[in-house]
Design a protein around this nucleic acid. Structure first.
Length: 266
DNA sequence: ATGGTTGCCCCGCAA
């Protein structure tokens, strides 16, 4: 089964391009971030036509996440457990039941950006990461296969950014941010794409400004984190960077600043 | 050192 994540930066502004990618990549499960709309404004029909069950946790203007699955889903959770006073829609989770494999729990997340740091936005980011860590700890105790994937807004290492010095004071790359990410990883989760490509340089986001895409000045911030039981089943993965190219797919819409990441499990 | 882009939606904010 194929599981993907994509920060689309507005589902409605980019729908033609997004659908072309779904038709080409045919993920069984895909979590989306920054849909930037309320649930009732999400183009559910376009995805139901393609066989997806749509679970939404939308928000007007900002944030908003979705979990789309060709397989039945149960036990849908909207919002990070234990973070009940969070008014930003950044987390959705469900148990997925493939017809040809064991169930897997999928959490889709849009971790706060945190800039400017220091400040209240950065405090919110670190607090959110603490809640994510607690969720990972709780799920690990089940000893079940799960994945936590999405836009982490964390550059794990210097290898994951074209110019580390330029990002030294950014909330995505500060030592405290990377330490909080390591705390989660070191619970026993596998960074699937870094695991598959230990020595490669590859990015998932390029700023719209300063010709970042043309110069490949990117950062790796979209991650697929696997529980041990999910890591046992990992068979492949990748980054679909072609979707960032202006020449990809429909010219009716501009590309997102992020590209999809995906893995397959047996 | 500055400025450069995009989406939402009403104009500045978030990224």
């Amino acid at each position: 089964m194929k599981i993907a994540s994509w920060n689309v930066n507005s589902i409605n502004a980019r729908l033609p391009r997004i659908l072309e990618w779904f038709d080409a990549a045919t993920p069984d499960v895909c979590v989306l971030q920054e849909i930037k709309c309320l649930d009732e404004k999400f183009p559910v029909g376009a995805f139901e036509d393609r066989g997806y069950n749509c679970e939404l946790h939308g928000q007007k203007t900002y944030n908003g996440v979705a979990l789309l699955s060709k397989f039945p889903v149960e036990d849908v959770i909207r919002g990070l457990p234990g973070n009940d006073d969070d008014d930003q829609s950044r987390y959705i989770e469900a148990m997925v039941f493939p017809d040809d494999a064991e169930p897997v729990r999928v959490g889709g997340l849009y971790l706060p950006n945190g800039n400017p740091a220091p400040g209240p936005k950065y405090d919110y980011k670190l607090g959110w990461m603490a809640h994510l860590k607690a969720r990972a700890e709780a799920l690990l105790k089940t000893e079940e296969a799960f994945i936590l994937t999405g836009d982490y807004n964390v550059i794990p290492q210097a290898e994951d950014v074209h110019n580390p010095a330029a990002w030294a004071d950014d909330a995505l790359f500060l030592p405290a941010t990377r330490a909080a990410f390591r705390e989660i990883e070191n619970l026993g989760l596998t960074d699937a794409l870094r695991h598959l490509y230990p020595y490669d340089v590859f990015y998932t986001f390029w700023d719209y400004q300063r010709g970042a895409w043309q110069k490949d000045h990117g950062i790796r911030i979209d991650h697929v984190m696997l529980s041990p039981q999910a890591a046992d089943r990992l068979t492949s993965g990748g980054v679909d960077r072609t979707t960032r190219d202006p020449g990809f797919g429909s010219q009716e819409a501009k590309p997102s600043d992020h590209v999809p990441v995906w893995i397959t499990l047996d």
